[in-house]
Design a protein around this nucleic acid. Structure first.
Lengths: 108, 108
DNA sequence: AAATAAACTCTGCATATCAGAGTTAATCAA
DNA sequence: TTGATTAACTCTGATATGCAGAGTTTATTT
């Protein structure tokens, strides 16, 4: 059976990565606001994504408050694409608007 | 931001529910073999799905070894459909074969 | 009827998730 | 220009989740 990347298949991280994929570079605070999550929780999940090189940080200091900018790496983008393809194979995702399950298909 | 049903958004449970949706009623052993998972783990996840009424059991006894047949309930099927729709809104799932992320869209 | 095996279920450990307290650094007010 | 305030993180510990294997029950086999 297909494997779902456990790093991406978690509610907050899926949203986080999806958001980064769509919106590009984001600050810690932007992410916190967008996802409505606590500091500690966001930090913990970002750390995992950083450790896997799915996300990279660019820290800016000197001008204004110190800020970290988070971006999806090429590897992260690839992982997301693979993840989406796995979901598509696993779930009956046909076309937008027709996502309901009509007829069960027999097991393999 | 959209919420991803945490009961469904977990690797094993997503596969489990997807499989039940596609293949219909399955025994414990069938599920174990198909998913390649330990007894204890399968039991734990099935319990959660049962508690949420996403899945129902029918226990057969008397003729042959006692067996439990697990099925997706209408509620479970609905939850799965909602879950898929949420994924589609969240991720750039457009059409099969074109799932790559081409152009970032700006944040809300 | 004793041994074997299938079909579950329970227990406990390991890891993950999460919120809030703590820390550092910049801006603002006087 | 310095003390207060606030934004931007980071660390800590408490709770929940995930998991494997040991244990239990019930049927077959010999």
């Amino acid at each position: 059976m297909e494997e779902l990347d456990p790093l991406l298949h978690q509610p907050l991280r899926t949203q986080l990565v999806a958001f980064l994929a769509g919106a590009g570079e984001q600050t810690f605070s932007d992410l916190k606001r967008q996802l409505g999550v606590s500091d500690g929780n966001l930090d913990a999940h970002l750390k995992k994504l950083l450790a896997a090189d799915y996300v990279a940080v660019r820290k800016e200091t000197g001008k204004g408050r110190p800020q970290s900018f988070f971006v999806l790496t090429p590897g992260g983008r690839q992982a997301l694409n693979d993840y989406i393809r796995t979901l598509q194979r696993l779930l009956p995702i046909d076309a937008p608007g027709a996502e309901g399950i009509a007829t069960p298909r027999l097991a393999g």
